[in-house]
Simulated assay, not measured.
Amino acid sequence: MLFGGFNYHGNSFEQSYLCYPASFIDKPQLEMGDKIIMPPSALDRLASLHIDYPMLFELYNGATERVSHCGVLEFIAEEGMIYMPYWMMQNLLLQEGDIVRVKNATLPKGTYVKLQPHTKDFLDISNPKAILETTLRNFSCLTTGDSIMVAYNNKKYYIDIIETKPSSAISIIETDCEVDFAPPLDYKEPERPQASVPTSKKVEQAHEPQNEAEVERKFTAFTGFGRRLDGKPAKEVFSSDSSPMQDKKSETASSTKPISPSTSEASTSRQTKGKLVFGSNANRAPKEAQVAPKETKEPAKEEEPKFQPFTGKKYSLKG
């Protein structure tokens, strides 16, 4: 159906226009939202159609196949032209004078939107949530994949629309929408400092092997005092400095040496003290040396009668 030289099909509005930024008509406030300025003929056609309010439109760039959505602010543009925010032209990859198709659209009310700032400077604002709420009051809808502009304190912050629910394009007019933030694009996680070992621990770790070697050297097995099972006092106390292993080494070393009277006397003296002697010297010792231990044990036998078990008075069970 042809209407006034423009193509209108049934109850829908669809028309192609030449687009220009808002700076062409000296309306800087247009940059603070997502609304465009259309010609009066578009208002005439929209008024005759039964469309939903508020008026929302789909913008389509056929050359790049980019799609976005917007609202309308005024109908004062020249015929065949529309004016839009410059950041919106950047989303659609449009240049001044490029052709864009405008079509009316019905969008569901949004329930969720996820935003991602381009720089972490936006998070340094004292109250970014309040600034974002104030800015979004000038917006009619949000489209996944777009980058909106938030102006604050003479600085422009760009924010990507990562996700919207319940659809890829939503209306944010008179609706409660949950907002979530993703980390900024230039955000880097701080490096975790490596745990430094204190110098005192390093010194301890350096001395640990040496200390273990010293412990091994000082360790002597089977040290202590000898005790008799019958309760009598021991005749000899073994020193804790000498170890059985050392005695064994010394005795084996002595067994390898040739037999001499001094060594035989030493072996007999060892036998008299009640120590075990390993090696051939024990067999080669003279008979006098073998008899000597018996003589030393005789006093111990004389003391044995002193121990009298089951001593005491006798009693009769008859009373």
Rank of each mutant, 00 (worst) to 15 (best):
L229A: 15
K218G: 03
E204W: 12
R217T: 05
F222C: 08
A213C: 02
E216K: 09
R217A: 05
G231C: 06
G231L: 05
N211R: 10
N211F: 03
Q205T: 05
R227G: 15
E212V: 12
Q210P: 01
R217I: 06
A213R: 06
T223V: 14
R217K: 12
N211T: 07
R227T: 15
A221G: 09
V203D: 04
K202T: 01
F219C: 04
T223P: 02
V203Y: 04
D230V: 05
D230H: 09
H207K: 08
G226E: 10
A213M: 08
R228N: 15
F222L: 14
F222Q: 11
E212Q: 15
F222K: 10
E214S: 13
D230T: 06
H207D: 05
R217L: 08
D230W: 06
T220W: 03
L229G: 14
V203T: 05
T223M: 12
H207N: 12
G231I: 03
R227V: 15
V203F: 05
G231K: 02
P209R: 00
A221M: 06
E214N: 14
T223W: 02
F219L: 14
T220L: 13
R217E: 08
A221C: 11
G224P: 00
F225S: 09
R228E: 08
Q210H: 13
G226N: 12
A221R: 13
E214L: 15
R228V: 04
R217P: 01
V203E: 06
N211L: 10
K202C: 02
G231F: 09
A213I: 04
K218C: 04
R217S: 05
